[in-house]
Nucleic acid binder design. Structure first.
Lengths: 202, 202
DNA sequence: ACAGATTTTAACCATCTGGTTAAATAAAAT
DNA sequence: ATTTTATTTAACCAGATGGTTAAAATCTGT
């Protein structure tokens, strides 16, 4: 019994992820989510009281997928260049599996910024941040890397890792019309890390 | 008479930009746009037959604001490093004025990718592209810059320029909670150009 | 076979929303 | 002054949508 219960729930969540990611909270239709999950609307409401509750769960999952690689990076004790390679790989492997996440999260955060305020504290981001900002500052001081604002370095790494996924339809049409952009993105983790390291190393 | 006609129309468009950017096509309400424009719903429909037509105009404007700096870059005859500085400044000054555009465009393109297919051909992007891709390849060949796929270089420049605006709410909360992120973004054009050039130059 | 949980069917409802209409007013152009 | 255009008011409508309900049917563990 447990099995079917969980299975149906997972069908609903998978459908909700697809529809919400494509159309957003306002554009998604409960009927379409039900269809996509292979059930009917009544059963959908039997599992999730209302659209908002279902959305919250999907959004929270997605947001955590975005914030976790960053938290890992900030808490990582490795040497700086290795850390950079690590986060690039974390983001790229996550985004190849869930390419819809950046757009989805950024869009809903834009619509209702208060949604993240509760979610952003958790996951141990705060503690790790101090450590890594200090590590970068130290690397600048001892002449291991060029002078750069640590926050800027982090922002650059994230921008290079995430933006190509968020902008995929345009980027594909504009730059990779002939080739397979998925292969491009697959190979990109190493390239991004090299690009960043090349820029800061002395 | 002309004056008032144009003024009302501009009020409507300004309101539509605000509401559509915040809530998307599906989430926007015609009543809210009318309120925001200081008119009533009947008059709004007197100017724009329906929501879709109004949205199309707003979206087209926004998309052109995104694509034009890129077209400029691709058509630019300057020396490569100067071109990179140029596009970084173009994007940053545009986005400081219209910070909502990246999110808005990426989101709606994601919802309905066919929307850009007509818009992407125009603006002389196609011709310029060949030129700049060749220029970058030549720079690699003569050893002016490190080996890099030209499309990748372009994608990196755009990622670094646009992503921080698209992700502003999260970035602000995460990295720039104490400082004013607007000042950060204002100073960023030069920093991004330097970051890129530093990475590719030999 | 029985009890309890899951799923379907199918109808229903209240509300919201895009869009319309028609008449009255105000403003501008002639 | 008269005509034309812009704007308001206020009511209305049809369709979509989130959500509910109740009864029947199906499944599952015991």
């Amino acid at each position: 019994m447990e099995k079917k219960l969980v299975e149906t729930q997972e069908n609903i969540l998978a459908a909700a992820r697809t529809i919400f990611a494509q159309k957003g909270l306002a554009g998604a239709r409960m009927q379409e989510i039900a269809d996509n999950a292979g059930i009917n609307k009544a059963l959908l409401h039997y599992y999730y009281k209302n659209k908002e509750k279902l959305f919250e769960q999907v959004f929270e999952e997605a947001f955590k997928k975005i914030i976790r690689p960053l938290a890992s990076f900030l808490a990582d004790d490795s040497e700086l260049f290795q850390k950079i390679r690590n986060i690039c790989h974390l983001y790229h492997s996550m985004l190849l599996e869930y390419p819809f996440i950046p757009n989805f999260v950024m869009n809903e955060v834009n619509t209702d910024p208060s949604r993240i305020l509760n979610l952003i504290q958790i996951e141990g981001v705060v503690e790790g941040k101090k450590k890594t900002l200090g590590q970068i500052q130290e690397a600048v001081k001892i002449g291991k890397i060029r002078p750069i604002d640590p926050r800027e370095l982090i922002l650059n790494i994230i921008s290079l890792s995430i933006f190509p996924f968020a902008s995929r339809p345009i980027t594909q049409e504009l730059l990779y019309k002939d080739s397979d952009i998925n292969d491009v993105l697959k190979a990109r983790a190493d390239r991004v890390a090299d690009f960043v390291i090349q820029s800061i190393k002395i």
